[in-house]
């Protein structure tokens, strides 16, 4: 059994969090509130260090931090946008806050716009287009045929401006089958990785804390 206080704290919190599987209880609630408090403070503090100090103040006023190099005032604009967003704390200034949010929404939307075209349309089109018949290679022919059929029918399933009836209903039904097989496969393939996370926690409890097993 461990003699380290830290290990005991970690172990008790682990048990408290796991107790949720039974039902919501006093210990889970304590662990939950500790976790929310600790994590929000932690993320806030690390962001202050990395974004506000390192990326903004240190670059804009290097001499104040005894750093060499010329000052770069550009990051201060980020701070200004941040202050705009914060301005909603002053009653009646909500609309100014929207300006800051609009900047973040706008530029990120622009980036995602062409990102989607490149990654999800053009590159995918490239990998979807394959020969439907490969001479003297039955398995490749089947593989390509089935793959194209799968993409074709699944994509048809999402067609919104037509009822899924008649021949179109048959096509979309086939698409749903492909989708379901895909979901099942994705589900099955994550089982092992998820189990390994639990095993990691159990190992901590049984080995590091209690010392009943040796790994």
């Amino acid at each position: 059994m461990s003699h380290d206080l830290g290990v005991w704290v970690a172990a008790l919190l682990t048990l408290a969090a796991l107790s949720f599987l039974y039902k919501d209880n006093l210990f889970y609630r304590i662990a939950e509130n500790i976790f929310v408090g600790v994590s929000s403070a932690w993320v806030f503090a690390t962001n202050i260090h990395s974004d506000l100090i390192d990326d903004m103040l240190l670059k804009a006023f290097p001499h104040a931090f005894h750093q060499p190099g010329p000052p770069d005032l550009k990051p201060l604009w980020g701070g200004l946008i941040g202050l705009l967003i914060l301005s909603r704390l002053i009653p009646g200034w909500t609309s100014l806050s929207r300006w800051g949010i609009a900047f973040v929404v706008g530029f990120q939307t622009g980036i995602q716009l062409f990102g989607a075209i490149v990654g999800n349309v053009l590159l995918q089109l490239n990998s979807t287009i394959v020969p439907l018949f490969v001479p003297r290679n039955l398995s490749a022919t089947l593989r390509n045929g089935l793959g194209t059929l799968g993409t074709f029918t699944s994509l048809s399933y999402f067609y919104f401006s037509r009822e899924q009836k008649g021949w179109f209903g048959v096509v979309t039904r086939l698409g749903v089958w492909f989708l379901m097989i895909s979901f099942g496969a994705a589900y099955g393939s994550t089982v092992m990785t998820r189990m390994s996370i639990l095993i990691g926690r159990l190992q901590f409890l049984l080995s590091t804390w209690l010392g009943v097993i040796h790994t």
Binding site: A17, R29, A31, E32, F35, V36, S40
Partner: peptide, 20 residues
């Protein structure tokens, strides 16, 4: 309301809300 920027702290809280 805001909970936490941490993924699983957010989940821990939301799970609690669902139960309560």
């Amino acid at each position: 309301y805001y909970v936490s920027d941490e993924q699983f702290a957010f989940v821990a809280h939301t799970n609690g809300v669902m139960e309560r």
